[in-house]
Design a protein around this nucleic acid. Structure first.
Length: 848
RNA sequence: GGGCGAUUAGCUCAGGGGUAGAGCGCCUCCCUUACAAGGAGGAGGUCGCUGGUUCGAACCCAGCAUCGCCCACCA
């Protein structure tokens, strides 16, 4: 029978076959079902730009484990898959391709053609990532695949925008935004990465208009320090702190902005830090957020000197047409030539870069659409405070509240092309309104598109049919859990909460799992530019998907972790171990069977049952690492190492049944984590039903058996004590020995290789401490070498233990304050070690 | 400048008031009919430092050091 079974497990021959089978049998399909409770996870949609990375592999493993578990527990379980159009990210990829392949920019091909290219690219790339999700084993309902550019999804986006617009929560305003000159678009605060840059601080001198009038130190100019000298072309004032005594005479005087020949005034504003630089600040309202605020306070004009692509515009005088870096150099050179350049100092500082294309961000004045956030944030803060959403770990709930409490209005317009076009229309007479379709002749639609995160903010309910009140939506919303990396907690998760509360009047998910970030092997972040990325698909090929999944979950706690191939190797070894156990169980004679359980049978059932309880609770609380440790140690260190050995050496009539029952239960426990291998093993064992749709083992208090636990615990210790003794004393072959009280004799005899004798010569015994008992084996003369030394070692160990227990028990405060359980433990320790010491000492006397 | 987290065995990491755990690596023995991707037995740690709380601290508190990460408009 078992000769049919391959000797080693080959994941390559198994995985695709099972995925196809699950799909064929509709194992992952879910529909509203009033007879069952719903369980729903909506997948964070991967971008259509790319391939699966380690973060997806980890998060996929987590979500799949949870959905499979829920499904097996009898919930109507939906894991809803989807992909995101990834506006700016995809546009960047397509632009790069266009430049590489045809040497063209998006402006060369035009908006319509470019958007079409994006659409085609997205469609192609999307099938790749979906295929990879299958490789991962993702138990998603493919019938429900959603895409943020689906017609129905677009409708949801329009609905949401128009609702917020009509409620007055969306407005248009001219403000300083983070402008990416490469993408020629505004981006949000959250999409700016600040990096340390070795910049310079330049002393800029503004000559006094009234000729030679002395500055504070008698010069004929006012000096300011700036790290962006080119922005001086847009200066509309200088300011000093009103309390700065050095400069009281300066306020009200006029200086000339070099090159553009604009006269500006020196004003006072409390924002200025007198200790920085010269204590004089140049104000460029169109190019700096602080300056913009100051400008508003002082009623200054804004002079924008830059084009959308970062070149200097007509306001830049002689520098017009230059790129910003070129302009910086040119301005500095020109200042130097006119003797208007002061000190130039090294100035390490942080500069914002575009998250997507890496270009240096320019704070730039432009007209954008904003979502007013405070009203939306309020209910979200409340929901988080009330723990309507449970966050694992809880520290992230508090962080998110903190962020929401300090929220700024959200710039949702992008001057990109790939995305949802903003449904605002401008009428012939200057009317402005939001509408799905053109309100009529002569109306023109806004050119901008929406921030990707606006559409993904609707994800948990738009995917279920919103704005229609579909059966799916009623049944599956709010979803059960959202699992995500913390880097998008604000960008995405917080916004879903706000949108869900706004549009569905309820939180979008009941639980949020914030998982670790998978770092490269050296503990740094993985990045393509560093070339230290690990491709999960390679790992799947090499180790098997189940092994990789197990390894990832084993490493996944609240802490980020450096990916370790050892964990995949561990997973692979585990699969192999289980595979071999399958072969053993399968070949195990079934012959006679009865319900008459031996203590060993009762023990493994009890142990299994405890494992079910702990493991299930760990998964429930998203403690994946703990769950993996628990199931691994049960399957390997209890079931395989002991119970299988017992089944070989000292079986009962019930053992065949218990062996199968426990092993098949173990496979079911493991199925959510290692779906392919366990499915194959169950099938090899003759299961007809899919493991994927079977029942998850439940905890049964009736199976707890303390007596059997204690008995087997002692027996195992006794066996180990003999094995240790053999290894240390280099004893081969059978030993004669006494059977200690309170153990499973048959098991002990068989596994320790001890032949029971009734009595023996005390002077020829070795006494081996094993927990609370002593195992005694008979020695031949030559075995006695070293025995005295060994005994002395054991005696001193027992004495130490005894003294420690005595010390504690002699302490009155300990007796008073320590819990009963701990005190009792110490008493028992005292007792056990006293007896141990007595036996060992007697034995030593006999030797001496 | 604020906030959060980390520091435990050679390595990668769990644990979180009651005498330190896993995997890998290392040492000894074993290719015994589930399994050498294995079995049996070992070695290896004053849990970053200094104080405090406690009968008891790796664990709680404070400070310090080092390393990460997030947030922030100092030119």
């Amino acid at each position: 029978m078992s000769q049919q079974i391959p000797k080693t497990y080959d994941h390559r021959a198994v995985e695709d076959r099972w995925y196809a089978e699950w799909e064929r049998r509709g194992a992952f399909e879910a529909d509203p079902n009033p007879d069952r409770e719903p369980y729903c996870i909506v997948m964070p949609p991967p971008n259509v730009t790319g391939a699966l990375h380690m973060g997806h592999a980890l998060n996929g493993s987590i979500q799949d484990a949870l959905t499979r578990r829920a499904r097996m527990k009898g919930f109507e379980t939906l894991w809803l898959p989807g992909v995101d159009h990834a506006s700016i990210a995809l546009q960047n990829v397509v632009e790069r391709n266009l430049m590489r392949e045809e040497g063209k920019t998006r402006f060369d091909v035009g908006r319509e053609e470019f958007v079409e290219r994006c659409r085609v690219f997205a469609d192609e790339s999307r099938s790749q990532i979906l295929g990879q999700l299958k490789r991962l084993g993702a138990s998603v309902d493919w019938r429900r695949l959603r895409y943020t550019m689906d017609e129905k999804y677009i409708d949801a986006v329009l609905e949401a925008f128009i609702d917020l617009f009509d409620a007055g929560l969306i407005y248009r305003e001219n403000r300083i935004t983070n402008w990416c000159p490469h993408d020629r678009s505004a981006i949000s605060d959250l999409e700016v990465n600040y990096e340390d840059v070795a910049g310079k601080l330049y002393g800029l001198r503004y000559p006094f208009v009234d000729g030679k009038g002395p500055g504070p130190d008698g010069e004929d100019y006012a000096q300011v320090f700036s790290n962006r000298p080119e922005t001086m072309l847009g200066d509309t004032a200088l300011v000093v702190n009103p309390d700065d005594e050095r400069y009281t005479g300066l306020v009200g005087r006029r200086v000339k902005v070099p090159f553009v020949e604009r006269e500006i005034e020196v004003l006072a504003d409390a924002y200025v830090d007198p200790s920085f630089g010269t204590g004089v600040l140049k104000v460029t309202p169109a190019h700096d957020p602080n300056d913009f605020e100051i400008g508003k306070r002082l009623g200054l004009a804004s002079v924008n000197v830059m084009n959308p692509d970062g070149t200097i515009n007509g306001n830049g005088g002689p520098f017009a047409g230059m790129g910003r870096e070129e302009a910086r150099k040119a301005v500095v050179r020109a200042l130097d030539e006119e003797d208007l350049l002061g000190d130039v100092r090294d100035y390490p500082h942080r500069v914002g870069h575009c998250d997507r294309c890496g270009a240096v961000i320019e704070p730039w004045l432009s007209e954008q659409w904003w979502v007013s956030m405070s009203e939306l944030a309020e209910p979200a803060i409340q929901a988080l405070k009330d723990k309507d959403i449970i966050v694992y770990p809880d520290s992230w709930r508090r962080e998110t509240i903190r962020w929401l409490e300090n929220i700024h209005d959200w710039n949702v317009s992008r001057q990109l092309w790939w995305g949802h076009r903003i449904p605002v229309w401008y009428g012939p007479d200057g009317e402005v309104l939001a509408s799905r379709e053109s309100p009529g002749e002569g109306w023109e639609q806004d050119q901008d598109i929406l921030d990707t995160w606006f559409s993904s903010g609707l994800w948990p309910f738009a995917t279920l049919g919103w704005p229609e009140e579909t059966k799916d939506l009623t049944y599956f919303y709010p979803t059960s859990l959202l699992s995500t990396a913390r880097e998008i907690m604000y960008l995405w998760v917080a916004r879903m909460v706000m949108m869900g509360l706004r549009f569905k009047r309820g939180v979008p998910f009941e639980n949020v799992n914030v998982h670790s970030i998978v770092l490269a092997e050296d503990g740094t972040k993985m990045s393509k530019s560093k070339g230290n990325t690990i491709n999960p698909l390679d790992l799947f090929d090499r180790y098997g998907t189940d092994a990789v999944r197990f390894g990832l979950l084993y490493q996944s706690s609240t802490q980020d972790f450096a990916y370790s191939y050892e964990r995949a190797e561990m997973g692979r070894a585990f699969v192999t171990k289980l595979w071999n156990a399958t072969r053993f169980v399968l070949a195990y004679p079934e012959a006679e069977t009865s319900d008459d359980l031996s203590p060993s049978d009762r023990w493994i059932l009890s142990e299994f049952n405890r494992t079910v309880k702990d493991y299930d609770a760990f998964l429930e609380d998203c403690e994946f690492s703990e769950a993996m440790r628990r199931i691994y140690s049960f399957a390997w260190n209890q079931f395989a190492d002991w119970y299988i050995e017992i089944a070989k050496a000292a079986p009962s009539k019930a053992t065949p049944r218990v062996l199968r029952e426990v092993f098949s239960g173990t496979l079911r426990l493991l199925h959510p984590v290692m779906p392919f291998a366990t499915e194959e093993m169950a099938s090899v064992m003759g299961e007809e039903e899919l493991l994927a749709t079977q029942r998850f083992p439940g905890y049964d208090p009736a199976l707890e058996d303390e007596e059997a636990d204690r008995l087997l615990d002692r027996t195992k210790r006794a066996v180990s004590a003999v094995r240790s003794f053999r290894a240390e004393s280099k004893v081969d072959g059978e030993l004669d020995g006494l059977i200690p009280e309170g153990i499973e004799e048959e098991v002990f005899v068989a596994l320790a290789g001890v032949k029971p004798v009734e009595t023996s010569d005390g002077a020829n015994r070795a006494s081996l401490p094993a927990g609370d008992i002593v195992v005694e084996v008979q020695l031949s003369d030559e075995m006695r070498r070293g025995e005295i030394e060994r005994l002395r070692r054991e005696i001193s160990r027992a004495e130490q233990e005894l003294r420690r227990a005595e010390g504690k028990l002699a302490n009155e405060k300990f007796i008073q304050n320590a819990p009963e359980r701990v005190v009792a433990g110490e008493r028992e320790k005292l007792d056990v070690n006293a007896r141990m010491l007595e036996t060992l000492s007697r034995r030593l006397d006999e030797y001496l």
